Amino acid sequence: MLYVKVKTEDGEELVLEVEGMTEDEIREELAKAGFKIEEIEVYEVEP
């Protein structure tokens, strides 16, 4: 499983499960949803 931890400019932290997306695609999708991203951390969790 691939997850991203996202910190927004307003200090909110989100953890999202993503599969088959690049970091650029993740940033693009979050921007479309109205999030202003300060930091993204991508990590993989073994089942």
Rank of each mutant, 00 (worst) to 15 (best):
E13A: 05
V18R: 05
G34I: 02
K32V: 04
F35V: 04
K36F: 06
I40E: 01
G34K: 02
T8V: 04
I40Q: 01
T22E: 04
E46L: 13
K36E: 04
V4G: 00
E25I: 04
I40R: 01
F35Y: 13
L16Q: 01
A31C: 10
V4I: 08
Y43W: 11
V6S: 00
E29H: 13
V6C: 08
D10M: 07
E28K: 11
E38S: 13
E46G: 09
M1S: 09
I37W: 10
K7N: 04
L16M: 10
E38P: 03
E38N: 11
E17K: 15
T22H: 04
V18C: 13
G34Q: 02
E9W: 13
E9I: 14
G20V: 04
K36H: 06
K5H: 07
E41T: 12
E9H: 09
M21Y: 10
E44C: 14
V4L: 04
K36V: 06
L30R: 00
K5W: 14
T8D: 04
V45M: 11
E44H: 13
E25S: 05
L30T: 01
M1R: 15
E38T: 15
E23L: 15
R27I: 09
E9K: 14
T8I: 05
M21H: 07
V42M: 08
E25Q: 10
F35M: 04
Y3K: 10
E23T: 08
L16N: 00
V45S: 09
F35P: 00
L30H: 00
I26F: 03
M21W: 08
E23M: 15
G11L: 02
F35Q: 01
L16I: 10
I37D: 07
E29F: 15
P47N: 08
L30G: 01
E39W: 15
I37H: 06
E13C: 15
E44Y: 14
E46R: 10
I26G: 00
T8Q: 04
V18A: 03
E25M: 06
L14Y: 13
V15H: 07
L30C: 05
L2F: 14
L14A: 03
I26W: 07
V4C: 05
I26L: 07
K32M: 07
E9S: 13
V18W: 07
T22R: 05
E9C: 14
P47W: 07
V4N: 00
E29A: 15
K7W: 13
R27G: 02
K32F: 06
Y3C: 09
E41F: 14
M21A: 05
L2P: 01
G11C: 08
K32D: 03
E39V: 12
K32Q: 08
A31S: 10
F35G: 01
E41C: 14
V4F: 07
D24V: 09
E13Q: 07
L2A: 06
M1K: 15
F35L: 05
